[in-house]
Amino acid sequence: MKNVIEVKKLNKKYKNLQAVQDLSFEVKEKEILGLLGPNGSGKTTTINCLLSLLNFDSGSINILGKEMTPDAYDIKSKIGVVFQDVAVFEELTVIENITYFCGLYIKDKKIRNRYVEEAIDLVGLNDFKDFYPKKLSGGLLRRLNIACGIAHKPSIIFLDEPTVAVDPQSRNNILEGIKKLNKEGATIIYTTHYMEEVEILCDRIIILDKGIIIASGTSKELKELTSIEEKVTIEIDDLKQEIIEEFKKLKNVENVSYDSKLLYITYKKGKDNLINLIEFMKTKKIKYNKFFSELPTLNDVFLELTGKELRD
């Protein structure tokens, strides 16, 4: 598939802070690209540079094969943006807001009205069409914000942390809506610091830290970057220190900790880790209440690459 966005050696500095450094990446047609990183990692700055809202110091940005500039109205007509902050008019109802923003792109009133109805349907605001924004909950407001950004059926959609401070129901609704837009053919650039979201949504992920790409690839590829094979958590009522020390001596064990009746064991890459663990507990007659294992997450990747948590 062809590239719809190409970014080469993008640099952006705010006074003494290098917000984005030598950023190069491309976005393929109809893919969902996730920009993952903690707050201040340069995600929003990158998006604003891509949209030609911000000056940047060097580099180039091409969208749909053309250089992106503030006057590139033909490109802009094919773009939809959902900003991190809700950007709607308090004086207009839900349907009026969506109609207004959709009308900046779609001249034909009939088509516009149809698109507006489809957008309302997509974000699940059918019961709130005539509500004013101040009457909506935070989650519904976010949905309205999304509908305003995508109602005109853009071929490229930028979503900048659209689920911040959103209730689980609205989050699910938003994520489902994004998947649907992608299925309908939209290319999506999605920024977030929620690793679960990029794992669910994105075909490809770029992990940013301090304005630098520290890793990129599919979720699976990124997880392969970590030395961790799996993490095991066992609920044990009482555990003596010498037994804990014995856990540490098991094959492939990287780290063991015991806190509040929970034993955490991190395994390095290797085979039969769980079988060996269960065997060991059986031999030592260790009674346990719960036992569960999980694969490494993107947070583990980020932790290993940067030494800090994604949500730090």
């Binding site: 949209l51 809202l53 802009k76 943006v81 950007a87 008019f89 900046l104």
Partner: peptide, 17 residues
């Protein structure tokens, strides 16, 4: 003006001068 409000930023990414 995009640097003054998010609604303006939304406007400035639209195809309206």
């Amino acid at each position: 003006e995009s640097n003054l409000s998010k609604r303006a930023a939304r406007l400035n990414v639209s195809p309206i001068h």
